[in-house]
Design a protein around this nucleic acid. Sequence first.
DNA 1: GTTCGTGCAAACCGTTTGCACCGAC
DNA 2: GTCGGTGCAAACGGTTTGCACGAAC
Lengths: 158, 158
Amino acid sequence: MIVPEVQAEIDKFLQGKGLRRTRQREVIVEAAFSTDEHFTADDLWERSRKIDRTVSRATLYRTLSLLVEAGLLTEIDLGKDIKYYDPNFLEHPHHNHLICVDCDKVVEFSDANISLLEDCITRRLGFRPTKKAIRIEGTCEELRRTGFCKSRVDKGPA
Amino acid sequence: MIVPEVQAEIDKFLQGKGLRRTRQREVIVEAAFSTDEHFTADDLWERSRKIDRTVSRATLYRTLSLLVEAGLLTEIDLGKDIKYYDPNFLEHPHHNHLICVDCDKVVEFSDANISLLEDCITRRLGFRPTKKAIRIEGTCEELRRTGFCKSRVDKGPA
DNA sequence: GTTCGTGCAAACCGTTTGCACCGAC
DNA sequence: GTCGGTGCAAACGGTTTGCACGAAC
């Protein structure tokens, strides 16, 4: 994926703040941006440890904060009780999330009209938008019509 | 506010599930719906205890779940790390939230066009929408222009 | 050599749960 | 009297933090 670009970006960020480039930070960035799936802190910890077994949870969390602060990673709310992180905002800065309640699949979408509407509404209320997030939960139409949803297969009976 | 109506509603819900009407549940409902502000579990606990000092955290949380399950209260994500609850969805079932990053003020809004767009997009992706939430964070235009925001007064210096 | 980063384990904090007693029905 | 509800305190799970050692610069 875009790991090298992200490494450059985080280098710039670290340098700007007088912070150091460490093996652990490299590993975590590599683990985070070698996929375009959303992940939890724990997911990322496991993936990092596959590259370097010594990465600790503490460092994972500390680095995660840095990446969010640097704007390379975005916290998203998928309606679960744990935080998810989305590595795709660099490439698609304005996307939103649709979550299937049948199979838990997450579909990203963006729509210029809806963005525009959001901006209008925000300004009308006397604010300037800085961060916008739409989360839609839905049921799979295919499952409802045909009784079968290919994304649902691995989830066991309804 | 609409406390009596809500009491009737929760009574119906409890009865339907063979659950009991208790003093504690009455108190918590009263505390929850005597305001139209968003609140945390702890906020609600304190308000409940002002009515009846014996309400415990455990019962608070258990009742909170019931109210959400009954559809009387909605969990919302205000971008903070704790859960907030919104008692206003009964009266305004389709509203969204705009959060001011300057003063933390939350403005509710709804918009038919945006709702329609959400539905279209969801169907186009092969799903049927069940729950939709828009969260916009923004900065106060008044504060930016005049250096003063009446909602900000109680927050101390920038 | 200085300073920042790290791993470890303990602390934290919002929430949930096991248990014995209590109260609605 | 039965069964669900409650308060208490302990447990839980994700996240943060204090500390002493280690590594970047």
